Amino acid sequence: MVKQIFTISTAGTDPWRNIALEEFLLLNVPENSVILYLWRNHRTVVIGRNQNAWNECRVERLEADGGKVARRLSGGGAVFHDLGNVNFTFIARKADYSVERQLSVLVEAVGRLGIEAVPSGRNDVTISGRKFSGNAFYQTGDNCYHHGTILIRTDKEDLARYLKAAPAKLAGKGVDSVRSRVVNLSELDETIDVERVREAMLAAFAEVYAVPCRELLPTDLHPDADAMIERRREFFASWDWRLGRSLPFDISAERRFPWGGIKLQFQVERGRVEDAGVETDALQADFFAALPEYFLGAHFTREEMLGALNRAIAAEAEGDAAVSTAPVAGLADDLRDFLTEEFF
């Protein structure tokens, strides 16, 4: 049961430090509490845990313009952040974690600004069918977070300049059409700015949970918080984490499903899988991050590859499935069909 809620905001706009702070809060969230963390990044493309940065954004162009690439812990797709966007993260232990309740805070906050919003699809919040907030989720052990964007005055030209749209997402749609389905809150009411949205989120958070609320400092959770966060910032800023290795996979295929797009890649030598890779914007980040290991050493035959996939699916079912979203109907069957139809 939630007995107390905490808020924390940061004035810093370095994405690597902000993500490090988010992780610190996740690992140190007290029992019977929920933390609302509000933060902003300066000109950043944030990619999902299992995505290829080079496929998702124009890295050289972004960095030449003074921007940064960041990789988060959660799954989902690439997003563009600038100072016209506010990011939120709800952090709680599993017993106190409720995506429905957390989303109600966002809907209530926008309602306080005179705008009616509704959750839509697998991870969006929309206004009259136009997306202003994309959400993603992560769990480690008993600790969970739900984070997302709130577009207020984001530069849509920069969004289109730095992000690459996957061909499967653009099928039958022009770039302008895709851009038109994203809306800034300021387009609906020009008086809405970052500070009004912050205030609305804090007020809605207190109203929805209706328990004592106070501001939080990282050092309230651990005396060495600053040093711990800085060490993790170095990790999140590293080339290996952000941009990763690029292997010359010799067999690959990709397909898009209602739960997300996926690209499977294999290096096969002497009939065995020597290496494997997965790129996906699916929300089930841990499952897809672990999936390549199950294929290693398997004979590249229909029977052994399906067996490896089924072991991965069984391991996920036996473990503590992600609490972030309802089970995705048909995901296992979709993967089996994809594997057999594309590779065998």
Rank of each mutant, 00 (worst) to 15 (best):
F236W: 09
F236G: 04
S238E: 10
S238L: 10
S238G: 08
W239F: 13
W239H: 14
W241S: 08
R242I: 06
R242V: 11
L243W: 03
R245V: 13
S246W: 06
S246K: 10
S246L: 12
S246A: 12
S246D: 08
L247R: 11
P248G: 10
F249R: 02
F249W: 06
F249S: 04
D250E: 13
I251K: 10
S252F: 11
S252V: 02
S252Q: 13
A253K: 04
A253W: 02
E254L: 01
R255W: 08
R255D: 10
R256V: 15
F257N: 02
P258R: 07
W259N: 06
W259K: 10
W259I: 09
W259T: 14
G260Y: 03
G261H: 09
I262H: 02
I262K: 00
K263Y: 00
L264Y: 01
L264P: 03
Q265L: 15
Q267M: 15
Q267P: 03
V268L: 07
V268N: 08
E269P: 02
R270L: 11
G271F: 05
G271A: 06
R272F: 11
V273P: 07
V273R: 10
A276T: 03
G277R: 03
G277W: 05
G277T: 07
V278P: 05
V278D: 08
E279A: 13
E279L: 08
E279K: 09
T280M: 04
D281C: 04
D281H: 03
A282D: 14
L283I: 15
L283A: 12
Q284F: 12
Q284A: 14
Q284E: 15
A285M: 10
A285S: 14
D286F: 02
D286A: 14
F287G: 04
F287D: 03
F288D: 05
F288W: 06
F288S: 05
A289K: 11
A289S: 12
A290C: 08
A290V: 07
L291T: 00
P292N: 09
E293Q: 14
Y294P: 02
F295H: 00
F295Q: 00
L296R: 13
L296C: 08
L296G: 03
L296F: 04
G297T: 09
A298R: 14
A298Q: 10
H299F: 13
H299D: 15
H299K: 14
R302V: 11
R302S: 14
R302Q: 15
M305Q: 04
M305E: 01
M305F: 00
M305V: 02
L306H: 00
L306F: 00
G307E: 01
G307T: 01
G307Y: 01
L309G: 01
L309K: 04
N310E: 15
R311E: 15
R311N: 12
I313T: 00
I313A: 08
A314Q: 12
A314I: 02
A314K: 08
A315Y: 03
E316H: 10
E316T: 11
E316G: 04
A317N: 07
E318A: 15
E318C: 09
G319I: 06
D320A: 13
D320T: 13
D320R: 13
D320L: 12
A321G: 06
A321L: 12
A321P: 14
A322G: 15
A322H: 08
A322N: 11
V323N: 02
S324L: 15
T325A: 09
T325R: 07
